Computed example of a mutant assay.
Amino acid sequence: MAQTLREAIKPKAELTRSESLELIARVLGCKNWNVLSAAVQAAGGTAQNSEPQEVLLDAAVLDRYVGFYELAEHGVMTIRRADGRLVSRLTGQPDVPLFAESSKRFFAKIVDAQISFVTDVSGVAQSLVLHQNGLDIPMPRIDADRARRIEQQLTQKLSSNRPSPGTEAALRRLIDGLRTGEPGYDAMTEMVANATRQQLPALHKEISEAGGVRSIEFVGVGNGGVDVYLVQHERRPLYWRISLDGRGAISTAWVAPGL
């Protein structure tokens, strides 16, 4: 099973939304997403989060948010206006329409995410905060030239499909720290450090149950320029996505089962 999944994602190092749903279902012991969805609904729940009520905003208000926002030096969130709504696009990903729930907060329907804009006294956005997967990810506003440079660098990395220097070593240190329960927070960005503190009990348990590291293999470059690694542990494999900022601090770190 591990070999099958590894070969399936190796050419692109990314899973589509439907593939991700199928993976979640299999991790939870269901045959496929339809089976899991039916089980959730039968239990009185729902497989989709309820959406807030949309409010309509004037074009003049929306235009104050249009622009480019930087994601940890390796991605750009582009916000534009189309058909009376805002549309977001993170580097390397498709457009995501946004729906206003207030004058400064927006939600997506095709992904479970929200965006809040931080404005100056005139109402023009100076930054945004992406709320997703339990994290609040700040992104400062940048000009078009910097956005273009960041996206060009990312395009070059995706084309090369090579790991960034230092990511494997940083991953090894991170895994060791999670196993001992003492990750090096000073080697992380503030956002990653805060998220790691919140999730440390679960991460420590997962790494401990997986066992010692036998090997680490680079799989490819994923969306946003993150490096994807397959870590073979004594008892089960895990996939890691990791990136470093310009100072060498861990700016992205995600782990998922390697079925």
Rank of each mutant, 00 (worst) to 15 (best):
residue 1 M to G: 11
residue 2 A to C: 03
residue 2 A to D: 11
residue 9 I to V: 14
residue 9 I to E: 09
residue 13 A to M: 06
residue 14 E to M: 11
residue 23 L to G: 01
residue 26 R to Q: 14
residue 27 V to S: 06
residue 27 V to Q: 12
residue 35 V to L: 10
residue 44 G to K: 08
residue 49 N to D: 12
residue 51 E to S: 12
residue 52 P to T: 05
residue 55 V to D: 08
residue 57 L to T: 04
residue 62 L to M: 13
residue 63 D to W: 00
residue 64 R to W: 05
residue 65 Y to G: 04
residue 66 V to G: 04
residue 67 G to L: 11
residue 68 F to N: 06
residue 71 L to C: 02
residue 83 D to R: 13
residue 84 G to S: 08
residue 88 S to Q: 09
residue 88 S to E: 13
residue 97 P to L: 08
residue 98 L to I: 05
residue 103 S to A: 15
residue 106 F to S: 10
residue 114 Q to W: 07
residue 115 I to F: 00
residue 117 F to L: 11
residue 121 V to D: 12
residue 123 G to S: 06
residue 125 A to Y: 10
residue 136 D to R: 08
residue 143 D to S: 02
residue 146 R to W: 08
residue 148 R to N: 02
residue 151 E to C: 01
residue 161 N to W: 07
residue 168 E to G: 02
residue 168 E to V: 13
residue 176 D to P: 01
residue 176 D to H: 04
residue 177 G to S: 01
residue 178 L to H: 02
residue 193 A to E: 01
residue 194 N to I: 01
residue 201 P to V: 14
residue 203 L to P: 08
residue 213 V to S: 05
residue 219 V to W: 10
residue 222 G to C: 10
residue 222 G to P: 03
residue 223 N to S: 13
residue 228 V to H: 02
residue 230 L to K: 12
residue 232 Q to C: 03
residue 238 L to Q: 10
residue 240 W to H: 15
residue 240 W to G: 02
residue 243 S to I: 04
residue 248 G to E: 07
residue 252 T to N: 15
residue 254 W to N: 14
residue 256 A to D: 09
